[in-house]
Design a protein around this nucleic acid. Structure first.
Lengths: 207, 207
DNA sequence: GTCTATAAATGGATAGAC
DNA sequence: GTCTATCCATTTATAGAC
């Protein structure tokens, strides 16, 4: 049994990234060092520089990795036909993803690391997530840029409050569906007019 | 003219804190060192330890200072009589405060510094802010804890998106009033029922 | 209360052998 | 690709003179 070769498998970028995620989860997004990271994958610190030119480059790879995970998760979900139900599901998926890992939330959705800016290539992934969300919203009737901005603010706000003020709980997660309905019902004319119209039609059908 | 004595005034905690805020704004909340801070107030690093036992203690003082500033700002504002207008004004005040200083936003409203936890005394100030907000919301008809949670999520989300994705701009700030209206109109029975009721009363007044 | 001097550890990163 | 050795800057924090 070539035991040693089984244990001495390739130490790929992916393994380093996985370890980095683990450390970030345990000690905070910026709370780990290159030495700790190397230890976590059974290497010495200098060996990391064979795979990544700098710590910032690792953050950038994590940034891209996080958005790739989100995109994969989004594709795996099959959305209901009903646009509102689809928006709810998408929102739930997003918030669950965001609160599942506070370090990841900080890296992907906040600007927390002084001086870190994702590369253009990595940022493209973020834009794809955004575009996909906008598409789902469009099907639900929200096409105005301001509507989409409000949507992103509300969802990111829910996720942030959840991890900041009730970590591990569900106090803000439980508000997601309600928030979605709120946002989808917000059209200038909106349910009031719709309801009045329906009521009017019912009582004066033949005009 | 005792010039030297004019320049060599007391280096108080407040001056150190002011300098710390300045560095945090310029280089990020965690992007400064004790040496830099000392330089900024014309001291040597060791002298800082006369006033603060550690860097964390400085963060804690900044945390308290930030919430004290917010409380003072909230008291200085005179709110309109109309509850909805008051809620709008309060929301505007809060978001303006939050986006005015990204480092402060990170310290006061997010969990960004690994290992930092405000002391109980400092946290009390944060709770006073929360209580004050809840009071304003109560006057506008929002008393459910879930309503208040949603409120805090939306406002913090707007502020966070503003500084993260449009620093210095007003893309999310402009959505504050709309968000407030959205939240205040969200009662289970709410405008739809109200409007229907009104319509019903108009057409069948004498029941 | 502020200083000089320095501890004592830690940081990211490089050189060069294997 | 990984290692040892180490650089070199930087960090928070302390000791003790003034």
């Amino acid at each position: 049994m070539p035991n040693s070769s089984m244990h001495r498998r390739r130490v790929t970028r992916e393994q380093i990234l996985d370890a980095a995620w683990g450390l970030a989860r345990e000690q905070g997004l910026t709370g780990w060092t290159m030495r700790e990271l190397a230890d976590a994958v059974g290497l010495r610190a200098p060996s990391l520089y064979v795979h990544f030119a700098s710590k910032y480059e690792i953050y950038d790879a994590m940034f891209a990795d996080g958005y790739r995970t989100l995109l994969a998760q989004a594709e795996a979900i099959e959305l209901p036909e009903d646009p509102r139900a689809a928006a709810r599901t998408a929102a739930q998926t997003f918030v669950q993803f965001a609160v599942a890992d506070e370090a990841r939330l900080n890296l992907l959705f906040l600007r927390v690391i002084p001086g870190f800016e994702p590369t253009a290539a990595s940022y493209t992934l973020a834009e794809r997530v955004y575009a996909q969300g906008a598409e789902i919203l469009a099907r639900a009737g929200l096409t105005e840029p301001a509507d989409i901005d409000l949507w992103t603010a509300v969802l990111s706000g829910l996720a942030t409050q959840q991890v900041s003020n009730d970590p591990g709980g569900d106090r803000w997660i439980n508000l997601v569906d309600r928030a979605v309905d709120l946002l989808l019902d917000d059209r200038r004319v909106s349910p009031v007019a719709e309801a009045l119209e329906a009521a009017g039609n019912r009582e004066a059908p033949g005009t």
